[in-house]
Design a protein around this nucleic acid. Structure first.
Lengths: 185, 185, 185, 185
DNA sequence: AATGAATGAGAGTTCATTCAT
DNA sequence: TATGAATGAACTCTCATTCAT
């Protein structure tokens, strides 16, 4: 990663914000450019296309979650319950603070139909999320049940995030997370 | 150039399909027109704008759910458990067969930001859904707990529907529904 | 002119109003239809096209002026000065009350370029206006001077009407008319 | 597909010509684009909307008149009569050469109703015209009479320009200008 | 006559993208 | 790299007009 990484990264961050809040199709390359003080054409020096930029955004978030959330599953010296609580804390605080919800979740509904690269990246993200949760739960539940529970947690999380965009309430999300935290208690 | 009368309802059904599968912004008025054998401009004889058409689609689905699903909450001669099972059966079979998931859920993420009429209709739909579930659950759980559980069920349902668009699997959705069915057993 | 003349005439009157106030191109056949309680397609039973309707409007106004204004030039038992005063009175009161100014004048600027039938009708109207004024003035001024003065009066009248659409003031128009009234005094 | 730089000013000049000759509503953005060798969408790089382009055209003409015509009122070392003659010469030669008449006058009738920005610019232009003429006349006529005469001159000028679009004759306009020239003789 | 559904062309506008400078 | 002019296709929407009922 070269020195201008800041610039690239800033574009990605700005684009993530816009894609989350206004939607992928509701955000033009002009909007992204304006938001980071460039003009439209200049974006194309950094990203070959809108789709490429979108993909970078997905990867950026994926990487962030891999480093700060999913990695908790493999932290040494922590009990399963401790891992599950920390994991859930991270997820909760991220999405309570994240304006616009979960970009990868959003894009399932907006773009995964026609854009196979997006779909693959999104699948990969959710696969990693599922694998991390499964790894935490497997000791207590066994492989099959752990996997099933992981998937339920992820689905409920995404559903809650979605509903938080409609209503202002956060209670359902927090309750759901509390139930998750107690799964290994 | 024959003149074929196209019914309002057929246009709405075609539009619903496209809005669900390709997204609201991914579907042009041309697409809708083509899908019902009209040309672009002719749609405007029936609906004043794309937004008006979209709103009619939301209302159409809302009404369908009100009649066939939410009304179960007030069916006479049924126990709470029976109502909950029938309710869940209806929800499950609808979304297992519905290509493209839940249009109202999808539109939370695509359009509710800038389009207040959409948001209001979507809120109204989810309020009705919540009220119906709460009515079924209230005798056993009390008002507060029934409401909270209803919201959890709805969020989980939406999350599962979302994940079904990414993966082909239906198991998580079915499991989740089974748990719901047993809530009053 | 058949019995349904009222209906035809009402359409023409409504269309005149709209063409004057909103302009010919700013008025759609829909607007005209709505304004007279018909639906768009029904207008075409009365007038074959928008251009035909426009032309009828021009002719209607032309006829009205011929009957009530230009005819003053040939009234018996009136002196030239009396004719000029009555003529000017009629012109003044018509345009002070006529919302939207002079349709025929307006259409010089809006449509005479591409629409030769309009142009011909407009020319005919102004020719008649000029002939009437010339007839009144000729005894005192001679043919050449009368014609020239008539043209000046018409041009000034149209200019004043135009400026009355921009400003609310009527004084310039009234002053100009007063000067005309005194030409034969 | 070569990329030719088109200057803003050239677009404005081309648009002015078309707006004058075919009318504002009779001229499409496509027409303007074609006339300056661009394609439709490219115009929007220079002007945000047709209305914005129209407004720039009005301002361009206003500025031209301010510099070359209205400024004559404040030229040093000229008598009032000399100023009035030069002023009238400029007006006359401009409108004798200007195909399509006076864009600002035309737009009073075409667009000032719904487009307040146009109306404001047009008013400002005619206010400046009136102020310039008044400044020339005030020494001989006094404020009130000078203003009134200025308004009469402007109205007559606009009326003559209008009638020149209908008939080919220029005599009425020239006669009228000669009378103006002699006002201070 | 009146209706209202349909047409097809064209309007203004937006947008992802390209490319000479 | 950054810029900004240009592209061309797509989009929403309007309109004069036609025609079966």
């Amino acid at each position: 990663m070269p020195i201008i990484k800041t610039s690239r990264e800033q574009i990605i961050k700005d684009a993530i914000y816009l894609f989350k809040v206004r939607g992928y199709f509701g955000t033009s390359m002009s909007d992204v450019a304006q938001s980071c003080g460039l003009i439209k054409g200049s974006l194309y020096h950094h990203f070959g296309s809108k789709e490429a930029l979108g993909l970078e955004c997905l990867k950026y978030i994926h990487e962030y979650f891999a480093l700060t959330v999913f990695s908790i599953a493999h932290l040494p010296n922590l009990s399963g319950s401790e891992k599950l609580i920390r994991f859930t804390d991270e997820v909760e605080s991220y999405f309570l603070e994240s304006e616009g919800g979960c970009l990868l979740g959003n894009l399932i509904l907006q773009a995964s139909g026609d854009m196979p690269e997006f779909k693959a990246e999104i699948e990969s993200y959710f696969n990693d999320w599922e694998a991390a949760l499964t790894a935490i739960l497997i000791a207590s539940f066994g492989k099959a049940q752990a996997t099933q529970t992981a998937r339920e947690i992820i689905a409920s999380t995404q559903g809650c995030i979605m509903m938080m965009r409609l209503y202002e309430r956060t209670a359902t999300f927090k309750n759901m997370n509390n139930k998750v935290r107690q799964l290994l208690a």
